[in-house]
Design a binder for these strands. Structure first.
Lengths: 158, 158
DNA sequence: TGATATAGTTCAACCGGCTTAACTAATCAA
DNA sequence: TTGATTAGTTAAGCCGGTTGAACTATATCA
């Protein structure tokens, strides 16, 4: 396969350029919210998880249950998360975003890749069309990949 | 322009899928190194800056000079960074990566987007070729963009 | 030369995340 | 029912990043 090498190189270059910029924008945004990175990551997990139990946050952040509990606690106090009992098992607390929390996360996602808007003007219509098609294929492949790898290895919980 | 809308949508979707996965891989990697996020970000800044003064780290991380100094100090003690006087201005300390530090950063970059290697097998040769071409154009555009926007706004330094 | 500005360091204090350990409450299994 | 397991909380303490303030040393400007 002659194309795999150049393909991976192109993907790698783009990933590096893209990540570097996006991560910085993201961290700057998080700082403006007054939240810590762990706190914001907690919100992100809940956002993508569509609400989840505490244990999922624990394994996602790779911290102890105590740490996750305290993190959530702070976010509840700020009015960004809500805790409620799950009906199927009253031990688990179902954690969901408030409207305020959701807005915060969505602005974060926006801030993270907002700079890519500036790319649009630098490309011709033909380029945009071809690139959009390429990205859709990549995104689809990545999502399939993610759907397969079911879940992260849980922490040893020493 | 009918394509700009769909282009930005495609870019946005990709960015979200990609960032979510990459950031998690990256944070997991950083954790394995035993370094904190601020410490690792310091290394990254020096890596991409090709060696730089402390003040650049200060503005990049958006912290006070005291914080940056201490961060660098810890990394020097771990043998990841080196400090030396700049010859053109003996006030500034030129900060560079040691071989060990460089290796650590490069493994981090690898860990961040290493999962994308799994995408290769899910695409046909034609797709790979088209996508590679598209990504190269994107990367080039992004780099040009970056080259223009010269530097970040410095912190108010209250 | 002297005054001011800039680059960086050190120190004390603070804050917040993280951990361990002990605990409550609910569920499951024998 | 009893015992063990699981989900989550609380409290004490540690560690490390961050800050403001005081300081040194070099550079710049008049």
């Amino acid at each position: 396969m002659p194309t795999t090498k150049t393909f991976q190189a192109a993907l790698h270059d783009w990933a590096e350029t893209f990540m570097r910029r996006s991560m910085r924008e993201w961290m700057r945004y998080v700082k403006t919210t007054g939240l810590s990175l762990p706190q914001f990551n907690t919100l992100m997990k809940v956002y993508y998880g569509g609400g989840c139990g505490l244990s999922e946050i624990t394994s996602h952040l790779d911290v102890t249950a105590a740490a996750a509990s305290q993190l959530v606690d702070g976010l509840v106090q700020r009015g960004l998360l809500e805790r409620s009992e799950a009906e199927h098992d009253r031990r688990v607390k179902h954690i969901t975003l408030t409207a305020k929390g959701r807005a915060l996360v969505e602005r974060g996602i926006e801030a993270r890749s907002g700079w890519t808007k500036d790319l649009t003007g630098r490309l011709t219509a033909e380029q945009r069309e071809a690139i959009a098609a390429a990205l859709r294929q990549l995104t689809e492949a990545a999502r399939r990949l993610e759907a397969e790898a079911p879940e992260l290895p849980a922490r040893a919980n020493r």
